[in-house]
Each structure stands twice: as structure tokens, then as C-alpha cells.
Simulated assay, not measured.
Amino acid sequence: MKLASKRRTGVVVALLSGLALAMTSTSARAATDGPDAIAHRGSSGMAPENTAAAIDLAVHQRADYVEIDVQRTKDGKLVNFHDCTMERTTNIEDLYPDRPRYRVSDFTWNELRRLDAGTWFHDDYADERIITVDDVIRHIQHTRTGLLAEISPCSQYGTTIATDLADALRAKPHYVHKALTRNRLAVQSFQTDDAHTFHTAQPDIPIGILDADRPTDTELVELSQWADQINPQHTVTDQTLVDRIHQLGMDINVWTVDEPGAIRKMTNLGVDGIITDYPQTLTQR
């Protein structure tokens, strides 16, 4: 990943040098230090996703980034949780059996902090809790591991969640400055409107566009005017796409890549980052 300020320079170089130079740069990247190891919801293959245990394990495994999911509670607290409802990974139905819905946004932080978010994964993680975005930052801010925060696409938030995240990071100027200096902070979203809203509010923080499908060239050219990353599903990614994204001055981080053969393939394509449930596969820790 890179700082947003580098994007325009990348575009000029690519336009002047053409596709051949982009392909050469891609090969050089793959042959040297390899892609960033981005721990998907923390080290979620070995610990319950998006908990402190998964974040801490990713740090121990020397992941370059932890990837988290940002949602908002009923009383405005930003929390790290993926699903739009909480039945899959918590005991919320047991603790609150009479509630009509189980969305994060329907509960206060004091209600959510009581949930067991670990037993579903393994009994060893009984009583692991949901954590806030502030908690995530506290766990990583004095480590080498950076943050890739995904703005939740859950429909109840609209674009306000992007503004909330921008405001929350603005309230942490020391952390943000240090993370950006080290190229260890970025935000991503499946929703282009959310991504653009965040970018408008925090233009210095790199912004990425998640995509389950292969983006068209027209989409890539339009996004290159303001986005820093294109982060597609690895199954739609090939050398042509990687080279085109680099030619347009953007980075590419692919998801979610767990099989060793797929990891080798993406590395050989020259992607900038690999989002994986098993970051130790890339860091060998």
C-alpha cells in the first residue's frame, strides 16, 4: 500500500512509460519483498474473527496489516464486527431472546460488550468479546502492524458510517500521522459512495474499492481519479488486471486468499497485498 500523495506521480509515470514499464515494475515487486500480508478480520483462521485474540495473533505473526470491519452501535460507538446481524458469531439470541432484530445498530455498546464472541469458534476462546475500533488501534499502535478498515456495507448505515469513521480517525491525529508516515493505514469499501464520502473527509488516508466482480476498464479509469486501491476478489484477478491497475497508479490487494497455490499465484502476479485468514502463510510465523 502507499500514501495517497503518491498516486498522481504514479499515474504520470505510467502514462509516460506505458504498459511495458508497468509490467516490468510488477515483476520486480513480486521478485523482491512480495505482497503485504493482510490479516482478514485478524488472524481469523486460528482465532475468532475481529476479536482481540485474532488481532493480537496477527500482530504476533507479523502481519503487515489487520483488516477489520467498522459498524456503529445504537448509541454511536464504532465497533469491529463483520456480519450485519450477530447470530453467527455471538450468543446474542441466548442473552437477548426477545429482541425482534439482531443488527449491531439495534444494540447499545453496553449491551454488546456482554456478548460472548469466541465460543462459536472454539471453547478455548469462551468469553472473547466484541471490541471497538478504538480497541483495535490500541492493540496495534505500538507495533509494526497497520490497519485496513472496511466501512460496513450494511444498508442501515447509509454513507453516515463513512463520515463517522473519518471523524473517529480525525480525533487520533498522532496515530494517523504516524501510521501514514509508515504507510500503515488505509480504508476500503464495497460501496463507492461510502468510499468517496470518506475520501472527501480524509483525503490523505488511502482509500480502496472492494469488488467481488472484475471491474471494467471504464470503472478503473474513473476510480483512478481519486481512489488509491482496487481490491478485487482473487478469483477475478489476472495479470492483465494487475498491470492495468498499476498503470493507472493504484495498488491492488486481493481477497480472501487462503490456499497456498492461490497465494503463490497472486504473489507471482505482483499484487501489492494479500488479504488472508492465515497471515502466517505469508510471514512464516
Results as ranks from 00 to 15, higher is better:
91 N>R: 02
259 E>A: 06
280 Q>I: 13
17 S>D: 08
237 T>E: 01
29 R>I: 04
210 L>R: 13
105 S>G: 04
71 Q>K: 01
66 V>F: 12
232 P>N: 06
93 E>A: 15
247 Q>C: 01
113 R>M: 08
48 P>E: 06
60 H>L: 02
265 K>E: 03
173 P>M: 07
183 N>C: 00
168 A>Q: 11
37 A>C: 01
284 Q>E: 01
134 D>K: 05
168 A>M: 03
60 H>G: 01
166 A>R: 10
93 E>M: 15
159 T>L: 00
265 K>C: 08
232 P>G: 08
266 M>C: 02
33 D>F: 07
50 N>A: 05
158 G>F: 04
35 P>T: 04
39 A>D: 02
82 H>L: 12
112 L>E: 00
95 L>Y: 02
281 T>V: 06
129 R>C: 03
67 E>T: 05
233 Q>C: 06
84 C>P: 11
35 P>D: 02
25 S>R: 13
123 D>H: 15
249 G>K: 04
104 V>L: 08
9 T>H: 13
251 D>W: 11
160 T>K: 14
174 H>P: 05
186 A>W: 10
211 D>C: 11
65 Y>V: 08
278 Y>W: 07
68 I>R: 10
68 I>N: 04
9 T>E: 09
268 N>G: 13
279 P>I: 00
64 D>A: 12
127 D>G: 11
33 D>S: 13
222 E>Y: 06
239 Q>I: 12
126 A>C: 12
193 D>T: 09
257 V>S: 03
83 D>E: 09
119 T>A: 06
152 S>R: 09
227 A>Y: 06
108 T>G: 09
182 R>I: 01
275 I>G: 09
16 L>P: 03
116 D>W: 12
120 W>I: 09
178 K>W: 07
128 E>T: 13
6 K>M: 13
147 L>R: 05
171 A>I: 08
231 N>S: 13
170 R>N: 01
18 G>I: 07
50 N>I: 05
118 G>V: 07
225 Q>L: 14
168 A>H: 15
209 I>R: 05
101 R>K: 12
118 G>C: 15
182 R>M: 02
179 A>P: 04
194 D>T: 12
140 I>E: 00
207 I>M: 05
75 D>T: 14
88 R>T: 03
216 T>V: 08
274 I>F: 04
256 T>E: 00
158 G>E: 06
262 A>G: 04
250 M>K: 02
220 L>K: 10
2 K>R: 12
220 L>N: 10
7 R>W: 00
121 F>L: 14
42 G>V: 14
161 I>F: 08
199 H>G: 04
30 A>N: 07
67 E>L: 02
238 D>C: 11
24 T>P: 05
2 K>V: 09
114 R>H: 14
41 R>K: 07
275 I>L: 02
208 G>Q: 14
148 L>H: 14
56 D>T: 01
138 R>I: 00
55 I>R: 12
32 T>I: 00
268 N>A: 14
210 L>Y: 05
12 V>A: 13
189 S>Y: 10
144 R>C: 06
265 K>M: 13
241 L>P: 06
266 M>P: 05
104 V>Q: 03
254 V>F: 08
194 D>A: 15
278 Y>M: 07
168 A>S: 08
138 R>K: 12
44 S>C: 00
57 L>K: 10
123 D>K: 15
50 N>F: 07
